[in-house]
Simulated assay, not measured.
Amino acid sequence: MRTDLTLTTPLPIFDGHNDALLRLFNSTTADPVAGFLAGGEAGHIDLPKARAGHLAGGLFAVFCPSPEKIDFGALRAAGGEVPMPPPLPMDTARASAVRMISLLFQLERASAGQFAVCRSAADIRAAIGRGAMAAVLHIEGVECIDPELDFLDVLYAAGLRSLGPVWSRNNAFGYGVPFRFPGSPDIGPGLTDAGKRLVAACNRLGVLIDLSHLNERGFWDVAELSSAPLVATHSNAHALCPTPRNLTDDQLRAIRDSNGMVGLNFATGFLRPDGQMNPNTDIELMVRHLDHLIEIAGDTHVGIGSDFDGAMIPAAIGSAADLPVLVEALERHGYDRPLLERLGTGNWLSLLERTIG
């Protein structure tokens, strides 16, 4: 597939998942919004790093943390499992969700047009076209939404266009996959009755349903109930890294057949065949996962879902500024320019046109 393109030709990237809002929420600095816009602080994503790495935008996740500290040290040994905290009370989740959504809009307001909250694929294209960072509001684990779904309508009016029914912590809508290695995603029941109502409501509103943390039974529940494409915004290949967080080949085929999408997750524990969270992880493993995702799901159904600011990533990609490192590795591997453009922005924008409009 080699062409005559020059290595490291700038490639705009739309990212299916980041946790920058959680980082800002947890920040101890006086003005985290100003820090994001000016750069110079710790973290994977800020505006200058995005500019340097040609990160054009992405789904900005609202993840409501548990009060209890989660110890991922158990995954350092094969057969380890991270104990999950108890379900998060709705009021606790709602308070942190509202704060993170506020931070998103503060970024837009303070950015002088350099950061735009987008509600449609047309909004995303327009923002990227004028050089602004395009942000879509996403919620990862919907503990802030009541089972009656009243708050979903409020969130939609505020700009919510994508949600994952669960994080790995179970909730009123379904059951997540544990942080375990090795392991199958086929663990426990799937969607609850409230979760099934949530799927119908998302289809009605035009809200993307993210399957990344949902267990396999829940995945197939969504596949049966939803009229929208199946999407896993930040998941990898179970065949290469057998953690429950990754997708089986059957799940990848279902995503392909639904005209859906999967985004490559940069988290080392979901890349490495030993499942270890280790920054000394070769970029070649990212290439192998992309090869497999493309082989099974097809090259029009794969993109990037970095998990920036929410995971340990390979040291060679220290931040969004280093995205060209991955692009160059893919070019050396033989990915031509049309394929890179599909992986970078084309596939995500096409998918979002089919889901959020």
Rank of each mutant, 00 (worst) to 15 (best):
M1L: 12
R2K: 14
I13W: 00
I13E: 03
F14C: 00
H17R: 00
A20W: 01
N26K: 08
S27M: 00
T28H: 05
L37Q: 03
A38W: 05
A56I: 02
G58M: 04
G58I: 00
C64E: 06
S66V: 03
P67Q: 06
K69R: 14
L75C: 07
P83D: 06
P86C: 03
P89Q: 07
M90W: 08
D91C: 04
A93I: 05
M100V: 02
R109N: 10
S120G: 14
D123R: 02
I128H: 04
A132I: 02
V136Q: 00
V142Q: 01
E143I: 00
E143H: 09
C144L: 12
I145D: 07
I145Q: 07
D146C: 10
P147M: 13
R161S: 11
P165K: 12
N171Q: 06
A172W: 10
G176S: 05
V177I: 08
F181C: 07
I187F: 03
V207M: 12
H213I: 01
R217S: 15
D221N: 13
L225H: 13
S227N: 10
A228C: 04
T233Q: 07
H234Y: 13
A239S: 15
T248Q: 13
N259L: 10
L264S: 05
G269Y: 00
L271E: 09
D274V: 12
N278A: 14
N278S: 12
N278W: 08
N280I: 02
I283W: 04
L285G: 03
H292T: 05
L293S: 11
V302C: 11
I304Q: 03
D307C: 00
L323C: 02
V325K: 13
V325T: 15
E331V: 03
Y335M: 06
D336Q: 09
P338G: 11
E341H: 10
E341K: 14
R342S: 05
L343G: 01
W348V: 06
I356Y: 05
I356T: 11
